Simulated assay, not measured.
Amino acid sequence: MDTITLGDIEITRVIERPPAGLPREFIFPDVPRATWEAHRSWLAPEFWHPESDETRSVMQTWLVRSEGKTILIDTGVGNGKERPYMPFFAHYNTDFLGSLARAGVRPEDVDLVVNTHVHGDHVGWNTTLEDRQWVPTFPNARYVIARADFDYWNPENEHKTRSGRQMQNVFEDSVAPVHHAGQTVLWEDHFELDGGLRVDPAPGHTPGSSVVTLTSGTDRAVFVGDLLHSPLQFAEPDCCPSFDEDEQQARAARRRVLGWAADHNALVLPAHLPGAGAAEIRRDGAKFAIKEWAAFA
């Protein structure tokens, strides 16, 4: 279990599923291989495997302890979910709750769950199956979800989405049950988790995509969810994955948040990076570069 402390806030990386590869052309269909080759020296083999041409990612949750609260940022894929059009997220059977227990957290200990956005690999452990019903995994938690995403992905609203059928069942089995249980907080402008943690909008990947900013003492960090799917996007921030609902918005949000991180010496914690898992960055002309990797290796 990898843990670091920033100011008075403790961050633990809880792995749901270890690093695995997915075809580069599926994740980044509009980014030519030549762009990846230009950064091979530091992307391979940890983040991109040139021989198989696969990007590598990990499924994980950030466990944050702050001001006496136990907070989870994103909840992964979850066990037993039916995902007919996203088969690599279907029918997981992992020991995620065991990993949380080894980090000293029982489901009833969790005070807040933050879903940086509503995608199947970020809301899955919101619920577990009991007596053939999906129920909140964390019975005492408030689930913090952007209203923009709640409304966008609610099938009752019949929105036309880029993801289309890939999102089948996600809202129904992983979002609606916690809302019906009265445990959701649907925020619109921003949401203060506590004195050191704040949720702000960063739309583009989804309409309600958000980031969690940490400020404690002289330390700064930002949990960026899927603002980045690969560290390639530090060096090439205009590159977008196939999952971005609005690429123009996503590029603008990525540049804004990374610019803030570079200017404030803030640790950037994406949702899916294997290896070190997070990095401090610096400006590199109109782009960004790794200044120092974190200690989550």
Rank of each mutant, 00 (worst) to 15 (best):
D2N: 15
I4S: 07
T5D: 04
L6Y: 03
G7H: 11
D8M: 07
I9K: 09
I9A: 11
I9G: 11
I11N: 00
I11E: 01
I11M: 03
R13V: 04
I15Y: 14
I15N: 15
R17M: 13
R17P: 06
A20D: 11
G21L: 00
L22N: 14
P23D: 13
I27G: 02
I27S: 03
P29D: 03
V31C: 00
P32M: 07
R33D: 11
T35Q: 14
R40I: 06
L43P: 03
P45Y: 01
E46Y: 09
F47I: 04
H49L: 05
T55G: 01
M59I: 13
L63C: 02
V64R: 01
S66Q: 04
E67Q: 06
K69R: 15
D74F: 00
G76A: 06
G78W: 00
K81I: 07
R83L: 05
R83D: 04
M86W: 14
P87I: 13
A90V: 14
Y92A: 13
T94W: 08
L100Y: 11
A101C: 14
A101I: 12
R102F: 07
A103W: 10
V110R: 11
D111W: 09
D111V: 11
V113D: 10
N115C: 14
T116G: 10
D121P: 12
V123A: 01
V123K: 00
G124E: 03
N126M: 00
N126D: 00
T127G: 05
T128Y: 09
L129W: 05
E130P: 04
D131K: 10
R132D: 13
Q133R: 15
Q133S: 15
P136M: 04
A141I: 07
R142Y: 08
I145V: 02
A148I: 09
D149V: 09
F150E: 12
E156Y: 15
H159M: 14
H159R: 15
T161M: 10
R162M: 11
S163R: 08
G164Y: 06
G164P: 05
M167C: 11
Q168E: 13
V170W: 00
E172G: 07
E172F: 05
A176H: 13
V178A: 09
V185C: 05
D189N: 05
H190V: 02
F191E: 07
D194F: 02
G195V: 03
G196K: 06
V199L: 05
V199S: 02
A202C: 07
H205F: 12
H205M: 10
T206W: 02
P207H: 05
P207A: 06
V211R: 00
T213H: 08
T215H: 14
S216K: 04
D219P: 08
R220Y: 12
A221R: 08
A221C: 12
V224K: 03
V224N: 01
D226A: 15
L227M: 05
Q233A: 06
E236P: 01
E236H: 01
C240I: 07
P241W: 05
P241F: 03
D244I: 06
E245P: 02
Q249Y: 09
Q249C: 10
R251L: 05
R251Y: 04
R254C: 02
R256C: 10
L258Y: 00
G259D: 04
G259F: 00
H264Q: 14
H264Y: 11
L267N: 08
V268H: 10
H272P: 02
A276S: 15
E280M: 15
I290A: 08
K291S: 14
A297N: 15
